[in-house]
Design a protein around this nucleic acid. Structure first.
Length: 434
RNA sequence: GCGGGUGUAGUUCAACGGUUAGAACGUCGGGUUGUGGUUCCGAAGACGGGAGUUCGAUUCUCCUCACUCGCCCCA
């Protein structure tokens, strides 16, 4: 038996009960918040025809970063790497019968074949929130509100993270204004996306290479230096995209979301986003990184041959979010779902005791009950119940069997009292509310 | 795909070119027969794999594998 046989597949995790408890808690927070905004849950198969990921024209991503294989019927299938194409497909399929705006969410597990590093595994879960059918910035604002509420639900302070926003339309306008052709714009967007990772001089040199003129570069650099939408020059300020962005930021701040900032260098990769994009950054020095983001992608549903449906959405991954919670010490202590463990020095049948019957009576009242059954020494039984996280221990021995008054030990306080089973049921239920 | 780091018990770590490779936590058992989270005693349990140098390698070298951090990429 070698060591590695005990490990889960590379980049994927086993969820031991304590891990699963954390996951359930985190998903619960996500669900509670988005459902409060009227979002409804959907899901889809974990496998998609490979074609769906080729629509963006990126053969390279499919070849290098997906789990793709041929099924027995010769069809090329890919394990889902993101939910956006899938949800767009689903919306396109029922576009005429849906009630708009349609607010949908999902928490799919996704697989990407990559080299791991902090915050990045091969299998992860991702909260996907999308609203279909809204053209105004209210949709974007709603996303920012949801993000803000999720962080507040886990007791994170706004000073711990930052929401950066930008507009792809605005960036494109700036690039075109600087006289760049379409393919040069695409290269410039890639370059700007990497700006934070290189020195200012390096960036300037590469930008000059691209534009072929210091004058053109200057316009772009000036735009990138803006800290606020109001700092943009007069021409840009008059653009619709600029005023939409300005309004979004202002309205977010009115709602108290003060950690929203304009980030002219924010690009969100090189994908289907069409207008406003946003990204959430952790401000903790130990984890100073982009956590997740989203934006408007009005064109994707239309790619399925349907009329385009305006869409805004975001996806947040479980791994990065967990890193955030850990770094900021926001992971709560989670209770076990075991409420009562029945322990006894006797086994069923001895001295008229019936452990099964006791447990059943409690279960009929929806109390979660585990029974030890081993009949081993008391300290072992109590220790095991404690380790399992049981809130109470119910001691059923000879005395109790005779009197039908059972000893209930509160594992938190260590106190114990004798009660009838019906009284025990109400005590346990009362404890849930705390 | 590229580069760095690390591989010793279940976990976190130690030591050493040479007798039985240590500890802590955890696990299991016990401290007289019905009380855990505090304490006392005891036990089980490890050098990732291969090759080389050497009288002798867990230690040095190389290869390999695994894990990990970063680059690329990031939907």
């Amino acid at each position: 038996m070698s060591k590695q046989n005990l490990q889960p597949y590379k980049g994927a995790r086993d969820f031991y009960p304590e891990d699963k408890a954390f996951q359930k808690w985190m998903f619960g927070v996500w669900r509670d918040v988005v459902e409060r905004y009227g979002y409804v849950e959907y899901d889809a198969p974990i496998l998609e025809p490979t074609d769906i990921y080729l629509m963006k024209g990126s053969q390279e991503i499919v070849d290098e970063q997906t789990y793709t294989f041929e099924d027995r019927g010769g069809r090329s299938v890919t394990i889902r790497t993101e939910m956006t194409p899938t949800v767009s497909r689903m919306i396109a399929g029922r576009r005429q019968e849906l009630a708009y705006p349609a607010r949908w969410y999902s928490i799919p597990n996704l697989w990407r074949y990559e080299r791991m590093q902090r915050g990045r595994l091969r299998e992860f879960w991702q909260l996907n929130v999308d609203v279909f059918g809204l053209v105004g910035i209210e949709a974007e604002l709603e996303m920012l509100q949801i993000v803000d509420d999720i962080f507040s639900a886990v007791k994170a302070k706004r000073s711990m993270y930052e929401i950066r926003v930008n507009s792809r339309v605005l960036v494109n306008t700036v690039l075109q204004q600087a006289g760049l052709r379409d393919e040069e714009c695409a290269s410039a967007i890639r370059l700007i996306d990497k700006m934070q990772k290189m020195s200012a001089a390096d960036f300037a040199a590469k930008l000059d290479d691209l534009t072929g003129s210091k004058e053109k570069s200057k316009q772009i650099v000036e735009f990138l230096a803006a800290k606020d939408v109001t700092e943009l020059d007069l021409f840009l300020t008059k653009l619709e995209s600029a005023s939409a962005l300005k309004e979004l930021i202002a309205r977010a701040k009115q709602l108290g979301i003060r950690n929203v900032v304009f980030a002219p260098d924010l690009m969100r990769g090189f994908d289907y986003y069409t207008d406003i994009v946003f990204e959430v950054f952790d401000k903790n020095p130990e984890n100073n990184r982009s956590m997740f983001g989203g934006g408007r992608y009005d064109g994707l549903v239309g790619q399925f041959g349907a009329e385009p449906v305006p869409t805004v959405g975001f996806g947040m991954g479980d791994v990065t979010f967990q890193n955030f919670l850990e770094v900021h010490k926001l992971v709560p202590e989670l209770k076990s779902s075991v409420e009562v463990t029945v322990i006894s020095p006797l086994t069923t049948g001895q001295e008229g005791i019936d452990l099964v019957a006791i447990a059943r009576e409690l279960r009929e009242e929806d109390v979660n009950v585990a029974v030890d059954y081993t009949g081993r020494k008391f300290d072992k039984q109590i220790k095991a119940a404690d380790k399992a996280g049981s809130r109470y221990v119910l001691i059923a021995g000879e005395d109790e069997a005779k009197s039908e008054q059972y000893t209930l030990k509160d594992m938190k306080t260590g106190k114990e009292e004798k009660h009838s089973l019906s009284r025990i049921i109400s005590i346990v239920k009362d404890a849930r509310k705390k």
